[in-house]
Design a protein around this nucleic acid. Structure first.
Length: 449
DNA sequence: CTGGGGATGGGGCCC
DNA sequence: TGGGCCCCATCCCCA
């Protein structure tokens, strides 16, 4: 016989113990503020703490002390409250920093919640806008603004560890449930109010993010890519330099947002993600609607462009290269990569840079890379050429065992995914469902700038 | 160490 | 709305 409330009460008791500093064997120092907690609970909740605590597990008699400078105490409080209660107090103001901190602490559940929070903020606000447009004649009462609470399903299932699932796993379910459908809208208004005020200023100057990047001295994309790869390389080790710069970048963004919050009443620039003001909408404004990125200051004209842009924040890379496993945010990038790297698509001799044709040059293979050499350079280099019609059965992957095993793994994991033969040659385009729970770590990485 | 070129990623916009 | 193309910025590798 199973008493379903047992886990919940247990967690509740632990939370009480934490608040009363009973049996706490771990101190977390965040920017000078001390949080007490239980090692067991932290270990089970965070990959970062798993690593940290497993290293110090031999000295269980000594209290563990962890120090963080890369996020604020308020942010850590939100996360700690979630760990002990299953309730994540997300607001438009804190979602970015919570996401950054969750990324740092390797708490994918929170990451996914934040991601869904942002997504549904956009979706719901869009629906709400339509609603407002259709009902523009009717008066609307403002809703009370309160933080949306994401209550995990942790206590609803029997196994407390595995029971709560990231929203991505059942994004639709979550989206349509109470969290997202109502409170997320309310909290989205907080995000969008920020967005609105940002745009009221920025809209007029419309400086592209590129200009701003230059202004801030920020690199376009590599910073985050590097951060991700560095993190991967460190295998959840002490990632601090890039992470802290990443978070400081987020803060920079937030501070800039705060600066932009000066002229609140300026609705001179309508855009998608703004809160619709209570005055009547001017139909002439509609063509000037813009979609505002909730993560950064970027605005785009079309929702599809925003969707595409959001991938650079969420880290989604739905297009994996079948040959080398590298993932891309766009199909065209995958195609370019595939053609240049694996298909020797450029009719240029790699050595002498001369134009070659099928007759005057050959395809040479090095690992998973293929390129062309003219016959002269080929003879000098003493390479074995491969026939141009070489296809997947002579896949270059055969020389790289690791990649092959990764492929095989992906094949197993995604056997039910749609596979499309794009070209008879050998490019297989496989759009990976971005809500697939399996490799969340690889695809869902916040790119907060 | 440095410059050049290739690879990659992101934005705008057309179809 | 998605796909695709073009352009540009940045990073990285190599000579």
């Amino acid at each position: 016989m199973e008493i379903s409330s047992h886990q919940f009460h247990l967690l509740e008791q632990l939370n009480e113990q934490r608040k009363q500093d009973l049996f706490c064997d771990c101190s977390i120092l965040v920017e000078g503020k001390v949080f007490k907690a239980h090692r067991n609970v932290l270990f089970d909740s965070s990959g970062y703490f798993q690593m940290l605590l497993s290293q110090s597990s031999k000295e269980t008699s000594q209290p563990t002390i962890a120090t963080f400078e890369v996020f604020s105490p308020e942010t850590f409080m939100v996360i700690l409250d979630f760990v002990y209660s299953g309730i994540l107090s997300l607001t438009g103001q804190n979602v970015i920093e919570v996401m950054s901190a969750a990324s740092y602490l390797q708490m994918t559940d929170i990451l996914n919640v934040c991601k869904t929070f942002i997504k549904s903020s956009l979706d719901i606000n869009e629906k709400e806008k339509d609603h407002y447009l259709s009902l523009s004649a009717k008066s609307t009462k403002s809703e009370p603004a309160h933080p949306s609470l994401y209550r995990s399903r942790r206590k609803a299932k029997s196994n407390p560890r595995r029971s709560y699932s990231a929203p991505d796993e059942k994004a639709n379910t979550v989206n349509e449930n109470s969290w997202s459908s109502y409170s997320s809208y309310l909290s989205s208004q907080v995000i969008l109010q920020r967005a609105e005020t940002q745009l009221s200023k920025r809209g007029r100057k419309q400086g592209s993010t590129r200009k701003r990047r230059k202004h801030l001295g920020l690199s376009q994309t590599r910073d985050f890519v590097q951060c991700k790869s560095n993190k991967a390389e460190r295998a959840s080790g002490g990632c601090s330099a890039s992470d802290s710069s990443h978070i400081s970048r987020v803060r920079e963004e937030v501070e800039l947002d705060a600066e932009n919050n000066v002229d609140h009443d300026d609705y001179g620039y309508n855009h998608e993600s703004e809160v619709i003001p209570k005055r009547e909408l001017d139909p002439d404004d509609l063509p000037r609607m813009r979609f505002k990125c909730p993560f950064c200051t970027h605005t785009v004209k079309r929702r599809a462009d925003l969707k595409r842009h959001l991938r650079c924040h969420t880290g989604e890379r739905p297009y994996p290269c079948e040959v080398c496993g590298k993932r891309f945010t766009r199909l065209e990038h995958l195609r370019n990569h595939f053609q240049t790297i694996h298909q020797a698509g450029k009719l240029i001799c790699r050595k002498c840079k001369r134009h070659v044709t099928e007759l005057t040059g050959c395809v040479v293979q090095q690992g998973t890379r293929r390129y062309r050499l003219c016959h002269k350079c080929l003879a000098e280099a003493n390479f074995d050429s491969i026939p141009d019609d070489l296809d997947a059965e002579h896949s270059p992957v055969s020389s790289t065992g690791n990649k092959r095993s990764k492929w095989a793994l992906e094949e197993e994991q995604k056997s039910d995914e749609e596979t499309m033969e794009e070209e008879p040659y050998n490019l297989v385009v496989r759009h990976v469902n971005d809500d697939a729970p399996d490799d969340v770590d690889e695809k869902v990485k916040p790119n907060l700038r």
